[in-house]
């Protein structure tokens, strides 16, 4: 299986270990992985800000770079959701491009969904000594149907115990530019998330999207919690340490 890895702009900039973890997992599942070197952003910031033109331009770039692969995988429900559920809207009046986009959508996956439902990953290379709780990120859950997949994979990690927190599917308050436009509302929302994480008794919160990660980790540290780790599901599964 030839897979194009869409690293995503936030992983590239903020936490490269997630990109390497995704790479390792895909290879462990027997995929041939290609990382197109000129990739940047899926265009979601423009799309959600109402700027269709810039979103469309970036969507064209992604389309050109990734349509040649058998599968496209991203360690993010948000970016894969942008491609699969929103790209068709960007090209709704362009029948020729729309056909290409539809083909891209059909082969675009969120990482854990791909590992479970397409590649059939049998074993997780990583080990984890402790209790974790899983935060369901919004786009992964509601646009890509990611809920059981990361939990099934985490169950394969030696030493890991999964505890469910209260309201794991409630938004953490990130919402892209929302977190900056309405910083205080967003902070109050992530505070509730942090309370639920703390109450779960987990040593780490595991999730599948960088936006939630930055928001939750930032709030945990601000409220004085330097203990609870915030990890991407790929890092835990692959045993890839963020330095």
């Amino acid at each position: 299986m030839r897979v194009g890895l869409f690293v995503t702009c936030l992983v590239d900039l903020m936490r490269p270990s997630i990109g390497f973890a995704a790479l390792r997992l895909l290879e462990a599942a027997g995929c041939e992985v290609v990382v197109p070197p000129a990739q940047t952003c899926c265009g979601q910031p423009g799309y959600n800000s109402g700027d269709r033109a810039s979103a469309r331009a970036l969507a064209c770039k992604v389309l050109d770079e990734f349509e040649r692969f058998e599968y496209v995988v991203a360690p993010s429900g948000s970016c894969s959701g942008m491609i699969r559920t929103h790209y068709p809207d960007l090209f709704r009046d362009e029948p020729v491009a729309l056909e290409r986009v539809r083909a891209l959508c059909a082969k675009t996956y969120e990482l854990t969904d791909f590992l479970v439902n397409v590649a059939g990953l049998q074993e997780a290379p990583g080990t984890f000594d402790g209790r974790v709780t899983y935060h369901d990120s919004c786009s992964g859950l509601r646009e890509m149907g990611v809920r059981a997949q990361p939990r099934a994979l985490l169950a394969k990690v030696a030493g890991l115990e999964l505890l469910e927190m209260k309201d794991s599917t409630t938004c953490c308050g990130f919402g892209g530019t929302f977190a900056v436009k309405f910083g205080d509302v967003s902070a109050a929302m992530v505070e509730k998330k942090c309370e639920n994480i703390a109450a779960s008794g987990a040593d780490a919160v595991v999730l599948g999207d960088l936006g939630c990660m930055l928001n939750i980790e930032g709030r945990l540290r601000r409220r004085g919690d330097d203990r609870t780790r915030v990890l991407h599901v790929a890092e835990v599964l692959a045993g890839e340490r963020h330095d």
Partner: peptide, 29 residues
């Protein structure tokens, strides 16, 4: 952890911003 983001005061009023690793995935790869 970044306590005051120069262009994101609304973010850092209520939370820190985790600092990036220092090198991009692209470079490391």
């Amino acid at each position: 952890m970044i306590r005051h983001l120069p262009f994101g005061a609304a973010w850092t009023r209520g939370r820190d911003m985790p600092a990036p690793a220092g090198k991009t995935f692209r470079e490391l790869f």
